[in-house]
């Protein structure tokens, strides 16, 4: 028990990169330490990205499972947080694609004269979420959900997760200038949508 507790203390002192290397060498306690460090950050990021807590929790668990299975793919060149957020965003994107396939409803079936398809997303905020969060937070989240995915991910990573521009560029795989412009354009869109929401509210 002493050895386990000592190991736990040692893992707390280690950096993320050192922990993942320790896990690669077979130290499962290092993985547990990484889970403790990143589970809340990851759930928060994924909740803002998906707008659904349950989905966020599931996606966060899937991300950790991917980390567990593909630990050997990490190399010391990149920061662990960058690599880990990249996995999280990819899992979130694939999941959203799957859900969009099943939740889309075709209106052309009801109106045969119309050739265009109107796709409606079936994202519904649960009563629990709406009860917990204040109305403002709820509207902000609604405005974030309304953004396109490529604006959403950069704004969340920058303004909510407090990551650097360089790190965001690495995660998204975009040039630094593109990342900055996308962040500004996303903020502009968010501002407009929030003003509309507030105007409608008033």
């Amino acid at each position: 028990m002493l050895e386990v507790s000592n190991q736990h203390i040692d893992n707390k002192k280690l950096s993320d990169e050192e922990l993942i290397i320790a896990f690669q060498n077979g130290n499962v306690a290092a993985f547990n330490e990484l889970v403790l460090r990143y589970k809340d950050k990851l759930v928060n990021f994924l909740f803002r990205y998906t707008g659904n807590r349950d989905d966020a929790e599931d996606l966060a668990q899937d991300t950790f499972v991917k980390l567990y299975r593909s630990k050997h793919l990490y190399k010391e060149i990149a920061k662990f947080s960058t690599w880990f957020y990249t996995i999280a965003i990819n899992t979130a994107k694939t999941d959203s694609r799957k859900k969009n396939r099943y939740n889309s409803i075709s209106l052309s079936e009801f109106d045969p004269d119309e050739d265009k398809d109107y796709e409606l997303t079936a994202n519904v905020i649960s009563p629990e979420d709406s009860a917990n969060a204040s109305m403002e937070h709820h509207y902000i989240q609604k405005a974030i959900d309304a953004l396109e995915d490529y604006f959403k991910e950069v704004i969340i990573l920058r303004d909510i997760q407090d990551l650097d521009y360089d790190e965001i560029a690495e995660i998204t795989g975009l040039p630094l200038g593109t990342v900055k412009s996308r962040i500004n354009r996303g903020r502009e869109k968010l501002k407009k949508s929030l003003s509309k929401i507030y105007n409608n509210k008033t």
Partner: peptide, 23 residues
């Protein structure tokens, strides 16, 4: 964009469930 940035930063941090590790 300071106002929006503050609003986004002040959003409540969502924490994982207690069953997260078990799951």
């Amino acid at each position: 964009y300071m106002e929006i940035r503050d609003k986004l930063k002040n959003l409540p941090k969502i924490k994982s469930d207690d069953n997260f590790e078990i799951m």
